[in-house]
Amino acid sequence: MTGHHIALSLRSAYLTMHRQTQKLLSEFGFTPFQFVLLSTLVDGDEITQRELAVRAFSDANTVRASLLILERDGVIERRAGVGDRRTLTVGVTAKGRRVHSKLSAAVKPLQEMILSSIRPDRAELLVAELDSLVECLGR
């Protein structure tokens, strides 16, 4: 086993999950990345765009482009920061919470299929190993 084998397997798993998620979300007019952003925001309070980019493992420009679409659709709100007017905070609207609920229901069967493909005693280990890999390689 080489690092190349691991990298190819990770790429294959990611792209397969991404394509399946895209199929499920496309009927709602959402992308997998928009769903990631919305899910990240639904789980907590308002956060800065910069923090959202960190949590979503993305770059600021990609996050900003997706947020403009989500804001246009009334799913999120962006506001100037309290302490620093140059900082934008992002939060989910009531509509956004309803939309997230529908999207979550749409992807639930896929998430269950993913979980069923991994033995329960190995799922936590897999996540820990992937987190370790991210830590080792650096964000």
Rank of each mutant, 00 (worst) to 15 (best):
K102C: 06
M1S: 13
S117L: 11
Q34Y: 06
F28V: 04
G44C: 09
G74P: 03
A7N: 04
F33T: 03
A123N: 00
I114Q: 00
P120L: 10
E46T: 09
S117D: 09
R55T: 02
I114W: 07
N61K: 11
I6H: 00
L25R: 05
A106I: 14
L37K: 04
K95F: 13
F57V: 02
S9E: 13
L130W: 07
A53S: 14
A106P: 05
R72M: 08
E71P: 00
E124P: 03
M17A: 13
F30G: 02
E71K: 10
E51W: 03
G138R: 12
D84T: 05
V134F: 06
D45W: 09
L15G: 00
C136G: 00
S116D: 15
R86G: 02
D84P: 02
D59Y: 09
H4D: 07
A94R: 14
S117W: 07
L115R: 12
R79H: 15
V90W: 01
V54D: 09
M17C: 03
S58C: 02
A7K: 06
V54G: 01
S26T: 12
L24A: 15
G3M: 10
S104C: 05
L68N: 09
I47P: 00
I6R: 04
V90M: 02
L110C: 05
R122H: 08
L8K: 05
V42G: 00
R85L: 13
K102F: 14
S117C: 07
V42I: 15
G3R: 07
P109E: 08
A128D: 13
R55F: 07
L137R: 09
R78Q: 15
V127R: 08
L8Q: 08
R19P: 00
L103V: 05
V54L: 11
A65L: 13
A94M: 13
L126D: 04
A65T: 10
P120E: 12
S66P: 00
S12T: 12
K108S: 11
E129Y: 05
E71M: 04
I69K: 10
A80H: 14
P32Q: 03
L137M: 15
I114H: 02
Y14C: 00
S132F: 08
V90H: 03
K95T: 14
A56L: 08
L67H: 01
D59R: 12
S58K: 02
A53M: 07
